[in-house]
C-alpha cells in the first residue's frame, strides 16, 4: 500500500516539478547567501582598509552601511523564499497530495 502511494507520487509530473523547482530555488538562494556573507568576510580578511574608508567628511566608514546591508539582505532573502514556498510551492504540494491520495 505504502509503496503504491510512493510510486503514484513519483509518477506524478507535478511532484517532479515541485521537487526540482523548490530544490533549485532553495540552492540558488543558499548560494546567493553564501556569496554575500563570505564575500563580506573575505573583504574583512583581505581589505580592511576598504571597509575602514570614510563615506564622507565624517567618521562613518563604508563598512557600516555594508554590514547593516548584509543584515537586511539576510532578512529580505529569507522573506522572499518563504513567500514563494508558502504560496506557489505549497499549492503544488497540496495538489500532489490530493492527486495521490484520492
Amino acid at each position: 500500500m505504502k509503496d503504491d502511494l510512493g510510486d503514484r507520487i513519483r509518477a506524478n509530473p507535478k511532484y517532479q516539478e515541485l521537487v526540482s523547482k523548490r530544490n533549485s530555488y532553495g540552492w540558488i538562494m543558499t548560494l546567493s547567501m553564501l556569496v554575500v556573507y563570505y564575500g563580506y568576510i573575505l573583504l574583512v580578511a583581505f581589505n580592511k582598509d576598504f571597509l575602514a574608508q570614510k563615506t564622507g567628511a565624517g567618521v562613518t566608514s563604508i563598512g557600516i552601511p555594508i554590514g547593516v546591508g548584509v543584515i537586511l539582505f539576510t532578512i529580505i532573502i529569507t522573506g522572499i523564499y518563504i513567500r514563494r514556498a508558502n504560496t506557489e510551492f505549497d499549492d503544488l504540494k497540496a495538489q500532489v497530495i490530493k492527486e495521490a491520495t484520492k
Binding site: 540552492w27 523564499y81 518563504i82
Partner: peptide, 14 residues
C-alpha cells in the same frame, strides 16, 4: 553579530 544571523536563511532554504 552578522555571523550569528546568516545561518537562518540556510536553515530556511534547506
Amino acid at each position: 553579530a552578522i555571523g550569528f544571523l546568516v545561518g537562518w536563511p540556510i536553515i530556511t532554504f534547506l
